[in-house]
């Protein structure tokens, strides 16, 4: 009797078709564009790696990439410690737990473009609540449509407002999974609060934090809607992040070749950094 057959492939087939249809084929189209020049009418001319070279040596790309890294770095540096701190100060039991959890989850439920629009209106210098208060009540000169620094402060604050909750909820999940015995043992061992955090809470949160940081990295590195709605990449190009620049090249200038090359470079960077981070974070777990 034959116990092995190839039938299993049929069960995988629907998934393969689906993935091919929504990911692989569009992706190959991008690859196709990235090595050719097109003038419409489906006329294509082979260009080789010209577009990649052009993008990699372009100052505009360097600047956008720099801004992108700065943005991601800043939000991670703020959101991760802040998220952990909030999670640590949340109650572990009692009637306030669900209240805290729901409050924390609320910002994440708001659609990205709504967040952008909300903050845009909120920050308008003369009519927005924040803008008006800063300018006319506190007397701080704040105009995100004119001042690059103000624009940066605003997009960073908006992202922190929108996404710190994700770090909070994941850290909190890690925290509540620590058995009481650990805290009791630490008390008996005479450990300080810092030691408890450093040697018990942080190691136990490591896995969820890895996921949180990874998610925040990918999301913030690819962020488009919120800063686009809030500042439109301005003033000037000061908040033009990679994705905003990409859309400008692809849809604004209709330079499909360079845009495709840039997409692939962009994708590779995201993938590489995520892989590097994940590998570094989990290499200790192997032994």
């Amino acid at each position: 009797m034959k116990t092995e057959n190839q039938k299993a492939w049929f069960f995988v087939l629907p998934v393969l078709v689906l993935v091919a249809f929504n990911a692989l084929i569009p992706m190959m189209t991008v690859v196709n564009y990235s090595v050719q020049e097109t003038f419409g009418d489906n006329l294509f001319f082979w260009e080789g790696l010209t577009w990649f070279e052009q993008i990699l040596t372009s100052e505009r790309f360097h600047a956008a990439l720099g801004r992108q890294f700065l943005f991601t770095f800043l939000i991670l540096v703020i959101e991760v410690p802040l998220g952990i701190a909030i999670a640590l100060s949340m109650p572990r039991q009692g009637p306030w737990v669900p209240v805290c959890l729901v409050l924390m989850a609320l910002p994440m439920l708001i659609p990205w473009n709504v967040v952008g629009a909300m903050w845009n209106i909120f920050a308008l210098p003369d009519i927005g609540l924040l803008g008006y208060t800063l300018n006319h009540v506190l007397g701080i000169n704040y105009d995100m449509t004119q001042d690059p620094l103000a624009a940066w402060v605003t997009i960073i604050t908006m992202d922190v407002w929108h996404w710190t909750s994700l770090v909070v909820l994941l850290s909190y999940a890690g925290l509540v999974s620590i058995p009481d015995a650990y805290y009791q043992a630490a008390k008996i061992d005479g450990a300080s609060n810092w030691s408890v955090f450093r040697y018990i809470q942080l190691p136990k949160m490591k896995n969820v934090l890895t996921i949180a940081i990874l998610l925040r990295f990918m999301d913030s590195f690819n962020v488009y809607t919120e800063p686009f709605v809030l500042t439109g990449g301005g003033p000037g190009n000061s908040t033009t992040l990679l994705s905003i620049d990409l859309v400008k090249i692809a849809l604004g200038q209709f330079d499909l070749g360079p845009a495709a090359a840039m997409s692939l470079i962009y994708f590779s960077i995201t993938l590489f950094v995520s892989w590097l981070f994940y590998t570094l974070m989990t290499k200790d777990d192997l032994n």
Binding site: A181, Q184, I188, Y199, I200, P203, K204
Partner: peptide
């Protein structure tokens, strides 16, 4: 408090500091 009583306790599940 426990740390001033000079006691030691071993729990049901081993409590160790993983990273050390």
């Amino acid at each position: 408090p426990p740390d001033q009583r000079n006691i030691a306790q071993v729990f049901q599940f081993p409590v160790i500091y993983d990273t050390m």
